[in-house]
């Protein structure tokens, strides 16, 4: 199986590579259009700030490539947020795979949310054998509200989407590569789709 991790200069990619390796797979880090198109699974990571990450995607023309991909694609953290229509972070447009906005957490909360929170209302095979109210690791200041594409929810001041799905596109707000055994299982489920 060919697994491509999209390389556009955003954040902690090493941990995803290692997590995939622990599961017995190999992944390549790439920004090459043909290599990404040819992959069986594509992982779209992201750590950092939304508007500058979108700039990096545009510079490497990945912003037009990603929405056209047909194999399973998994956006992680900022990757998921960039798959949405717009983000309040740096007031930027996104890839509009999910036609929903990314909003900032209310100021009455501690922001960023850092730590382990529970996921519930789980659906789709990527949560196969994952129990309701499982704990996952999250670090984020912006969120996606509940919507038609929601496949997992969490609560932090508001109920929000911790995972999204539309067609072949999946997005998770949490870091499966840092969410202990449950996270690795979710990653494995995705790789085995």
């Amino acid at each position: 199986m060919k697994i491509a991790i999209i390389d556009y200069g955003a954040g902690n990619i090493q941990s995803i590579k290692f997590a995939i390796k622990r599961l017995g797979f190999e992944a390549v880090l790439t920004n090459d259009e043909d290599e990404i198109k040819a992959a069986d699974k594509v992982i779209f990571p992201g750590v950092g700030e939304a508007s500058s990450a979108m700039k990096m995607l545009r510079n490497s023309k990945l912003d037009t490539l990603i929405p056209k991909l047909t194999q399973p694609v998994l956006g992680i953290c900022l990757g998921m947020q960039l798959m949405c229509a717009h983000s309040e972070e740096g007031d930027t447009t996104g890839l509009s795979i999910f036609e929903v906005p990314v909003l900032k957490f209310n100021n009455s909360l501690k922001v960023p949310q850092i730590g382990w929170n529970q996921i519930t209302n789980l659906s789709t095979p990527i949560f196969s054998e994952i129990k309701e109210l499982e704990y996952v690791y999250l670090v984020h200041s912006y969120y996606v509200a509940e919507c038609d594409e929601t496949i997992a929810t969490s609560e932090y001041g508001v109920k929000y989407s911790t995972a999204l799905k539309k067609d072949n596109f999946y997005g998770v707000q949490f870091h499966p590569e840092k969410s202990s055994d449950a996270g690795e299982k979710i990653l494995k489920n995705f790789l085995e789709l």
Partner: peptide, 11 residues
């Protein structure tokens, strides 16, 4: 750090 990241699945 590289060796820890390879083995450890928590932050």
């Amino acid at each position: 750090v590289l060796r820890v990241a390879e083995k450890v699945n928590i932050p």
